[in-house]
Nucleic acid binder design. Structure first.
Lengths: 154, 154
DNA sequence: ATTGCTGCAAAACGTTTGCACCTAT
DNA sequence: ATAGGTGCAAACGTTTTGCAGCAAT
């Protein structure tokens, strides 16, 4: 197990919910937390498969939802009808700018946004569960963007 | 044609892009702008079909993208891996609070958010195309929420 | 006359489900 | 012993595509 501290969080969560503690769940957790940046459930499954893991697609999908529930990872959606996840472990909460030209996803912090969800939800008589703030943008100088050039090659 | 003013916008856009002006496109436009609230492409197709329209599914999907491009409708995604649209016509820009209990989507205005995307994008050397700010929340008093009760019946 | 658009059906895509078997409790 | 979890494949729902015929330019 690579992520001892996270494993403890997952174990406690599974216990508290009376879910079973299985090796597959920790295997998925390790793979997910190892991942840099954002990833889809299927991506992770394929990767694990390539690394000779025997964990099934169904288990990967289900376990990722458990990891969201115990706050080890976050669920994101950048408007492509595709669920993405990213590790929360040792990371600050942040928002995203998605470049519509080169596909880059840039993370940024916005103290100004942080307290808004609570204020707004309260005024409408709701309590906040989570929020998403995404900016869709384009490179200011696309001709010099190496990510865009790379993308064009494909 | 129900929406003369919108039709003009669409016609101008199609001309400027050298796209053809077809009756199907105006039929989809009328149906989309008639729609209250948020709708999926397939919903719209089914509805039109029920009203004896002969426009095909493919055309509905493609035309909705054109309507987004000429800013008559907006594209939304509330994290369900399903694209939703809503009319922009005679409406102010707004953001959304999605209730995870009752499924309601509440619209709100946030002057405080409006200028943030520009500031942030500029500082990262991008130019804003659009942004989304969604709050996922729960009813403060779910037991008295009639939308939740209704949902439970299903 | 020439593209581009349409309708149809089939395919693609990410995701979920049903079921028999297995395993943590 | 018994839920609950797993792996597999099949099903699902939304969206995209390929293609032959049609219609706007």
């Amino acid at each position: 197990m690579k992520h001892q501290q996270a494993a403890e969080i997952l174990r406690d969560y599974l216990k508290s919910e009376q879910n079973r503690i299985t090796p597959e769940r920790f295997e998925v957790m390790d793979a997910a937390l190892d991942h840099e940046g954002h990833f889809g459930a299927d991506d992770l499954f394929i990767e694990m498969k390539n690394q000779k893991s025997r964990v099934s697609r169904a288990t990967v999908y289900k376990t990722l939802e458990l990891l969201v529930q115990c706050d080890l990872i976050s669920k994101r959606n950048f408007g492509e009808n595709l669920t993405r996840y990213e590790s929360n472990f040792r990371k600050q909460t942040h928002d995203h700018l998605i470049c519509m030209d080169c596909g880059r996803i840039v993370e940024f912090m916005t103290p100004k946004v942080k307290k808004l969800p609570d204020e707004i939800a309260a005024s409408l008589d709701f309590k906040v569960e989570s929020y998403s703030f995404n900016i869709f943008a384009r490179c200011k100088n696309i001709k010099e963007c190496r990510y865009y050039k790379e993308k064009q090659k494909q």
